[in-house]
């Protein structure tokens, strides 16, 4: 099998705060292959954005990466160890070069006093050998490609003159113009209306097949994941609790948290289904539960075990893995 495009292993991220060291991400491991779309799902505080920013080394100055964390990017010129990059010039490869990112709030991502076109040219000049004129042509072509009408005129406008949906399209055009190998999309449709969200999802699907890049798609919306991703990782309080193909995880969730999430979700196909909340609240990251991170809300937690031992990943058929003692037990029983 070919090498994964990006390989994240044992990623552990802590923040130094006034209240002490806070663990935001713990032992996160995943691979993304070229051309593959991986969804990263989780609620607020689950560590999905922090994980994504680590791939670009964009986390704030008080971030402490655990020494055993590894992020390897396999590029045509050879593998890049993301944590060994030091100077700004070296970091460019993961900051807009081979890795690009689109953010949730497109208004906050564009400089308000510089025209959209100028910002697009600027990054092309940094990351490519294009001349200014060629960069301009490519930028206008990209704006046109993402469906912005009258792209040449829009090119000279400012972000505030764009509507929300158009800003997000321009953001995508900008992120893709350097032809990244990996696109990180952090809640790219959350601030948009459903109708515009549907347009942006269609656009992203088209671009994946056209450009053949990989995408790390971060969202809290399982419906969006079902429609865009090939595989999915579910995060809770900094840990990946379940990983598998989209069909496996959504049709047959195994981890109690994934199950809870799916039964709390209102489904348009089944209006009579009762909405069952996951009991309790998400604990504060300052107060991480011992043992399994989900045990304080888990309906099947085993006292004396789930609140003491951190569950290992149990590998199930079809490449799926679940971090749960109860699932591990039932697999063992099934084998004997």
């Amino acid at each position: 099998m070919s090498e994964p495009l990006i390989s994240v292993k044992d990623l552990t991220i802590r923040f130094r705060t006034d209240e002490g060291l806070v663990t935001a991400v713990e032992n996160v491991t995943f691979d993304i292959n070229p051309g593959e779309v991986m969804g990263l799902v989780g609620e607020s505080g689950s560590g999905k954005s922090v994980t994504a920013k680590a791939l670009m080394r964009l986390n704030a100055g008080n971030t402490r990466y655990d020494p055993k964390s590894r992020i390897i990017l396999n590029l045509p010129d050879g593998p890049v160890d993301v944590f060994s990059l030091k100077r700004d010039a070296e970091l460019r490869v993961v900051r807009g070069g081979a890795v690009s990112m689109i953010f949730q709030e497109p208004m906050a991502s564009f400089a308000p006093a510089i025209s959209v076109g100028k910002q697009m040219i600027e990054q092309l000049l940094i990351h490519t050998d294009l001349s200014k004129a060629a960069a301009r042509d490519l930028s206008i072509e990209m704006l046109d490609r993402v469906g912005i009408p009258d792209a040449a005129r829009r090119f000279d406008q400012y972000a505030f003159e764009f509507s929300g949906g158009m800003r997000q399209r321009a953001m995508i055009a900008m992120a893709l113009s350097t032809r990244p190998r990996l696109l990180i999309a952090d809640e790219p449709t959350t601030a948009l209306d459903v109708t515009i969200q549907a347009q942006v999802i269609d656009l992203m699907k088209d671009l994946v097949s056209e450009f053949g890049m990989a995408i790390l798609f971060i969202t809290h919306d399982l419906g969006v994941i079902a429609q865009t991703a090939d595989k999915v990782a579910v995060m809770y309080l900094g840990r990946i609790v379940e990983k598998g193909t989209v069909r496996q995880v959504i049709r047959d969730p195994q981890h109690p948290y994934t199950r809870g999430l799916l039964s709390a979700l209102p489904k348009l196909e089944d209006l009579e289904a009762k909405l069952t909340p996951v009991p309790g609240d998400i604990p504060s990251p300052l107060d991480r539960p011992a043992g399994c991170v989900f045990q304080t809300r888990c309906p099947v937690a085993i006292p004396g075990r789930c609140d003491r031992d951190v569950p290992d990943d149990t590998n199930l058929s079809g490449g799926r893995s679940v971090a749960c003692h109860v699932v591990a037990d039932s697999v063992k029983q099934g084998m004997t």
Binding site: V194, A198, G223, I250, L262, K267
Partner: peptide, 10 residues
């Protein structure tokens, strides 16, 4: 509007 909602079934 209804049709634009991404369904949970992949």
């Amino acid at each position: 509007l209804i049709s634009a909602i991404p369904p949970l079934d992949p």
